[in-house]
Design a protein around this nucleic acid. Structure first.
Lengths: 219, 219
DNA sequence: AACAGTATGTTGAATTTTCAACAAAAGGAG
DNA sequence: CTCCTTTTGTTGAAAATTCAACATACTGTT
């Protein structure tokens, strides 16, 4: 557990919690660490939503596959970020999404009821954890607002430009990497890959954007 | 304030809080009630996101209007429900959405920092409020997941059918009202009103759905 | 009952997306 | 370096959406 401390201290769930308390806390919460290879499923759709996940290394994607096999990417989860917390906290019985390792991953799993309900030891950190969870959920909510803002646009071009503009604003630069390849970007924007490629080409020849692989620049 | 107690007791924010405590609490939180006429703006995009709103009577819609004037409806807020909590809790400086009264409304406004930060009186209900807020935010997150599930579909027909199926599942019946007129439903599904009307007609002649005004039935 | 105003349905043309199939480029393994 | 696999780009035809314009139905008021 020790080797993950630096990452865990950056996790919004443990914001403002001292290192020594954090270690004790993790024991009390029954936190465990599991390893997943690239492309492996961390949580499968339909599984019970008991656990909160924290990415210790690697990264993962939250996806949803519909009846016809169309994949939709809901979000990307990076190191020190939390996932599946909304389902665990809301007490839904089955996960409506799948979480897949994007690269080899170490994932910390915490049974959410251990966070929500005071334990026998009556340790005093639950309040802080719940406060942090609340702030994290508020931030996730804003993330979804942005995703909806992007996908509510009617054309591929507008979706792409809205996404890139938000990304640029977030990093504070006009030049940045995105965490998606073309197919994944299409699945995030909810458009066709081929149409997306065509649109990127057009924007490039029009001198509006520049891009190489997953690096983009707004001109 | 007394006349709103029955509604407030149903508000998820005050879940598990006794009536007598609730009254004192509201005073301590500095809760105030404002009246808004139909179509009036409760919160405007760009306004500071300090306040959490609770619908005491009437209903409201959370909308987003883009650069070109296209309206997108994010959600509907009914009696005893909370709104704008994510922005207030996450501490964003300006609201990215507008909240509009759908009918004449009484709205309770609470400065979110009064909920988040323990007051001088050191009253003991903050923990419970924060816990409730956390659960509410988790539920909102799930709501957004569903909205994304709906709008990620590629055709108007699929979007509509996904929406209606979720709605039917929620109420547990195949026959139900929706809180939207045609234009609003189109703005919620992120499609054209005329195309939506055409699709509803088709589904009707195909014997898949039945509808009159905002009442729908899945056959 | 008549009217005005709003909401809903209908239609065809223009635009855009999706789909399928293939070409080109990039990356990895041996 | 070469082969093989994966990713990305390109294209044209089919399907769906958007747009604009108008017809019809509905609502509330006088």
């Amino acid at each position: 557990m020790k080797k993950h401390l630096e990452i865990l201290k950056k996790c919004p769930l443990f914001d403002g919690i001292e290192e020594e308390n954090l270690i004790r806390m993790l024991g009390c919460l029954g936190a465990k660490v599991e390893y997943f290879d690239k492309k492996y499923t961390i949580f499968a759709e339909g599984a019970p939503a008991k656990y909160i996940g924290i990415v210790l290394s690697g990264s993962a994607k939250i996806i949803q596959v519909d009846y016809y096999g169309n994949r939709s990417i809901l979000s990307e989860v990076e190191r020190s970020e939390v996932f599946a917390e909304a389902f665990a906290c809301a007490g839904v019985d089955a996960l409506p999404v799948t979480v897949v390792a994007d690269e080899p991953c170490e994932i910390m799993l915490i049974n959410c009821s251990h966070i929500l309900h005071t334990c026998a030891n009556n340790c005093g950190f639950h309040q802080k954890l719940i406060f942090n969870l609340m702030q994290d959920l508020a931030n996730k909510s804003i993330m979804f607002h942005q995703k909806i803002e992007i996908t509510s646009k009617r054309t591929t071009r507008e979706k792409l430009m809205t996404y890139l503009a938000l990304r640029a604003k977030k990093v504070g630069r006009n030049s940045f990497d995105i965490p998606f390849d073309r197919q994944e970007l299409a699945d995030y924007l909810e458009v066709e890959r081929s149409g997306l490629s065509a649109e990127i080409s057009k924007l490039r020849t029009e001198g509006i954007i520049e891009c190489r692989k997953n690096h983009f620049e707004l001109l």
